[in-house]
């Protein structure tokens, strides 16, 4: 393992951040979810965005409404979420910057053309947003003309073959080797030492899971080192709510079936996050 590889916590550092287009600083979308290629060394392949990525993460009625509304207005037989290949990502900071010319989402283009563009003084030039024909950033979903509404309820949305979504790993119940409940997945640790993407950058590999003893939602970044527990009152409160937080390496995980995570080793043998 490369000692200097960048380490990120998916939920804390990547999910829900703003995606910015490098070439003109245009705000494109949020990192609504991440596409993962499973296997022995799973790694992140793409940023997913739009209602079809956010909806499943929201869950419940709002999520259902969001995905179904989106499908209603989509032209393709099997709409997938808006997708930006990870090889385009140039920087992960307070925002995620992407190179190339990923297109705007369908709703923006439709509104520009049919509503805002028709009001005098909009002075927009939608042509600037025309996609450049690069192989990796033409998601099927943006290919159709969104203004052509075909009011048919779509089949269940399908991701690309052989991929899963990182959002699905969060909030899962974790069981120990003998089936007892050990905790809840709170975050996914990513290390940038995966396979090369587009021959320049290494992919973010899923290195392991952060597991909180108690189910209490997000960690808000307070799982990190003690220097980052400020303001102390808030830090103490959040850490108390979650109980102990431990870290399971990917090879300590036996299976990921049935919306549960089963560990191959007992809770006591997992590393504490203080060592990270």
């Amino acid at each position: 393992m490369n000692e200097h590889a960048r380490v990120l916590h998916a939920r804390l550092h990547l999910l829900d951040r703003q995606v910015v287009r490098e070439s003109d600083d245009r705000l494109l979308c949020k990192v609504d979810d991440l596409e993962v290629r499973p296997g022995d060394r799973p790694y992140v392949t793409a940023i997913l965005s739009g209602p079809l990525a956010l909806g499943p993460r929201l869950g419940g009625l709002p999520g259902w409404l969001m995905t179904e509304t989106d499908r209603l207005f989509r032209g393709e037989a099997r709409p997938g979420p808006y997708r930006i290949d990870m090889s385009l990502v140039t920087d992960v900071g307070s925002a995620v910057r992407v190179a190339g010319h990923p297109q705007d989402l369908a709703l923006e283009r439709w509104l520009t053309r049919n509503v805002v563009g028709r009001i005098p003084g909009a002075a927009g030039t939608p042509e600037q947003d025309a996609p450049e024909s690069t192989a990796q950033d033409v998601p099927e979903n943006t290919a159709g003309d969104a203004s052509e509404k075909t009011l048919r309820v779509r089949e269940r949305e399908e991701d690309r073959p052989d991929t899963m979504r990182l959002g699905g790993l969060l909030g899962r119940t974790v069981r120990g080797p003998s089936g007892e409940v050990a905790g809840d997945t709170a975050d996914v640790r990513l290390v940038q030492d995966g396979p090369l993407l587009a021959e320049v950058r290494q992919a973010f590999r899923l290195a392991g899971l952060l597991i909180a003893r108690r189910r209490a939602g997000r960690l808000f970044g307070y799982e990190r080192g003690p220097g980052l527990w400020r303001p102390s009152l808030l830090g103490a409160l959040v850490r108390r709510m979650h109980g102990e937080i431990r870290y399971a390496e990917w090879d300590q995980i036996e299976s990921l079936d049935d919306d549960e995570v089963r560990l191959g080793v007992a809770w006591d043998r997992l590393r504490s996050t203080a060592d990270l």
């Binding site: 703003q18 709703l107 923006e108 509104l111 509503v115 563009g117 909009a122 002075a123």
Partner: peptide, 20 residues
């Protein structure tokens, strides 16, 4: 919240969802 282009620093036609 949704990550749309917003703001008056771009012309209205470039921030359609925001202006709508």
């Amino acid at each position: 919240y949704f990550g749309w282009q917003w703001g008056k620093y771009v012309v209205p036609g470039r921030a359609a969802r925001f202006h709508v």
